[in-house]
Amino acid sequence: MSDYNFAYLDEQTKRMIRRAILKGLAVPGYQVPFASREMPMPYGWGTGGVQVSAATLTPEDTLKVIDQGADDTTNAVSIRKFFENTAGVATTEETEKASVIQTRHRIPEAELSEDQILVYQVPIPEPLRFLEPRETETRKMHALQEYGLMHVKLYEDISQHGAIATSYAYPVKVAGRYVTDPSPIPKFDNPKMNMAAIQLFGAGREQRIYAVPPYTEVVSLDFEDFPFEASKADHPCDLCAAEDSYLDEVILDDAGNRMFVCSDTDYCRSRRDAGHMGRLSEEAA
C-alpha cells in the first residue's frame, strides 16, 4: 500500500465525480460538467477515464485496462500500474474476471455482464463540435433536440465518399433522446453498446462525464437508403481464426506482406488457448 489516498483522488473529489456519474446515469447520454482535476499524466492520456475509474473503484474490485483492445501497450500498462500503486486493487487481463474495465477506443469482444462497469476515455465528448463550434449553441441544440446538423455530417460523408465513411466515433442516439459521442471506438463496436454492463464516459480536458445505463437502447444514426453498417476488415484473425472480432492490420515487411490480428488481445489469447489456429499460427508462435 502507498501513502496515497485510495485511488489517488481525495474523497471530496471522488464524491463530486460520483454525483456527476449518477446524474449521467439518470439522464442517459447527457454530458454532465464536472470539475476535472489535474492528474499525474498529460491530457489525452486518459485523465477523464482515470478520474471516473478512481471514483468508481472499491478495494474489492478487479481492474482491467485496455488501449485499442490491448492490455500490454504503454497507456494501458501505465494506468494499470497507477491504480496498482494508488489503490492497491487487483488487476487482470482477462475480461471475464474484471469488475471495472477502463478502455481507450475499444469495447471488449467478450460480452460484458451486469456486474461489470466499462469506463471509456473520451477526447471530445461533443458530437456536434465538428459542425457547430459554439458550446452555447450546441448545448441549446441538445436541449431542444435539434439534431439535423448531425445528419449533415453523415450527408457530407456520403457525398464525398459514396458511403458513410465515418469509421470511428460514430454518433449514436441514447435512449431516444441525446445524440452522443461513443468515444473513438470503431463503429464495429457500436452495436455492442446495447449491453448489460454500466458504461461510463470521462473527458478530462473537456470536463464532461456521461453514461449509458445497462440495457439502454443505443442507436447509430443513419439514412434510410444508407443504413448503418458495423464494418470490419474482411478477414479471419491470422492467429486465432476468429471471424467475428475486430482486427488490426499489421505490416510485416517491406514486401507488402501483412497480417490481420484481433485487436482484443485477451480474446485472441483465450481462443488460442482453446486450440483455435489461424493462418500464421505456427510462425507467430
Binding site: E146, G148, L149, H151, V152, Y155, E156, I158, S159, D222, F223, E224, D225, F226
Partner: peptide, 16 residues
C-alpha cells in the same frame, strides 16, 4: 448540397 439539405434533415428527412 449539405447547406441546402440541412433544413430538410432538421425537420426529419432521413433519406439521402
Amino acid at each position: 448540397g449539405g447547406n441546402i439539405g440541412e433544413r430538410l434533415m432538421a425537420v426529419g428527412d432521413r433519406n439521402y
